[in-house]
Amino acid sequence: MHKPTLSNRIRVYRAEHRLSQADLAAAIGVSRKTINTIEVGRFVPSTIIALLIARHFEVPVEEIFSLQR
């Protein structure tokens, strides 16, 4: 059985809102590197960070994060 991985659409939402990684990081109170590593799939964010990102873009968290097998 393959371990599921977390994919995200943060880059898409940032582009739609014309936000840089630094802008998004400052808005939700994390470092730019945290946003970058989440985007490229290197770091799995905590539930709190995932919810903060979703709240910032005003969408359900499932719109941004999903499990891939």
Partner: peptide, 12 residues
């Protein structure tokens, strides 16, 4: 080097 380069979109 993780996160040192901002890919694809840069508002600036």
């Amino acid at each position: 080097d993780a996160g040192n380069v901002e890919p694809e979109w840069d508002a600036s």
